[in-house]
Design a protein around this nucleic acid. Structure first.
Lengths: 255, 255
DNA sequence: AAGTGGTCTAGACCACGAT
DNA sequence: TCGTGGTCTAGACCACTTG
């Protein structure tokens, strides 16, 4: 049985260093990824069963299985025994904690209330453009917000979004929604965050951040710079968060 | 073919919540893990081939394969096509970066020269004992050291080790060795670090840390508290690092 | 050439969830 | 009861490393 497939192609993954050999299941994986990226199956929806996909691609179920295994490992899909395999979505509670690493010293993690301070469209400054891999001067959306814990401001986020992907994002749109940002991005703009890279530093509060976070000038803050990627490893968001870590900490697992 | 195996048992993993059903490959995985833990195969050495293990446990090669797959995912073993499967070791360059997340803004990561300030045995203070899950007053080893980058001190580490596991650890032993700490622990004391949990905060330099890190009083520092675990999820090390992040950052990948 | 891990297949059966 | 993903097997062949 000779599977009808395009010629072997690269995985597209971050560390794909021109593999000399592309096994069948990776080609299947690439095909499924393309369908995810193209929106054939939407976040939260089930993808076809392994049997169906095996028939579609003319390979054995085991090969489809191995392809889906990798997609599940990369959190692009979620398997549910007895029910099917579903496209991952930021609508799931569990997924939130992958990107929200700030935990209170005491009490439960829970979602933090927020307040948007600003939302404007502008031309990308040089440093932001470089991070987002777009040309300087291209349109971007800048969002500034505060996150609260027990009525006190804990996080100050400055967010830059690639303008082309977020047409129609306004302060009203943000304020109306009660969903987490990444959930909103996914449902309203079709932009799903897959992974992110962070650079963490200790800094001190300047005049502005001190006032907004209700801290004395010079108070220590955790600076978290994050570059987020969507399908195809395309950067679409760059943000810098300033965290007050007197009652919270940034949790990380090394394994 | 009826495999000769002990009755189904728990995985022992961190999130094993009394599974009602333990598949064969997990039982095999547990058996292999036990051999790793017991030192039947030492770090850096090859474990028996999949065929051999299949014969030993009286299961198919595919089942052994799946067990080893999980061990490889958890970084307990490393597969090398054409050569065999090897017990992971901190002697590999690549592994270092799993636990050393501090990167210079400019230049390569590379190993940082170090200086040991202190190494003494004492009875565990209450907070350290709690973190290490031992009784207060049990013997621990405290190590204090500095890490340098371009002749300047960047990291101040305070390390506590469970005394029972590190008999014979002295300042001389530390100074004589040029190997990374985890490599030394593994080769000299048979204690291999598997995973760790970190809590990260921004703090300010006090008198002591300011002097040691050659910084002004009140300079912002990254505080990284780490609890490290060995086989069987037993905590064996607790450390608090203070990082000067003016020329470095803590790198993290969310996925 | 021999031995290792890696891929692919086909089929049987199990556990789980919905009906 | 049915369809889903999950497990287990047995065998064939491929890719890589070493002798």
């Amino acid at each position: 049985m000779s599977p009808a497939l395009p010629s072997p192609e690269s995985d597209g993954g971050p560390s794909a260093a021109a593999p000399s050999f592309s096994p069948l299941y990776r080609q299947i994986k690439a095909l499924i990824t393309r369908s995810l990226q193209g929106g054939e199956w939407k976040p939260g929806e089930p993808i076809p069963s392994e049997t169906e996909l095996a028939a579609r691609y003319k390979v054995s179920q085991g090969t489809v299985r191995k392809a889906i295994d990798e997609l599940a490992t990369e959190n692009l899909v979620v398997r549910r025994q007895g029910k099917g395999t579903f496209v991952s979505t930021h609508a799931e509670e569990k997924v939130q904690f992958r990107f929200l690493r700030l935990m209170p010293d005491e009490g439960e993690a829970g979602g933090m209330p927020r307040r948007f301070l600003d939302c404007r469209r502008l031309r990308a400054p040089a440093d932001v453009a470089r991070a987002l891999d777009i040309r300087g001067g291209e349109p971007v959306v800048q969002v500034r917000r505060l996150l609260y814990f027990r009525e006190r401001p804990i996080v100050l986020d400055d967010i830059w979004l690639v303008g082309a992907q977020f047409k129609g994002l306004t302060a009203e749109r943000l304020s109306e929604s009660r969903a987490p940002l990444y959930r909103l991005f996914e449902s309203e703009f079709g932009v799903r965050m897959i992974r992110a890279e962070e650079k963490i530093r200790a800094v001190v509060a300047n005049e502005q951040s001190a006032e907004l976070l209700e801290l004395p000038l010079g108070a220590p803050l955790l600076s978290v710079e994050r570059l987020s990627f969507t399908y195809g490893d395309r950067p679409v968001e760059w943000r810098r968060g300033l965290y007050n870590t007197t009652t919270h900490f940034y949790r990380n697992d090394l394994s």
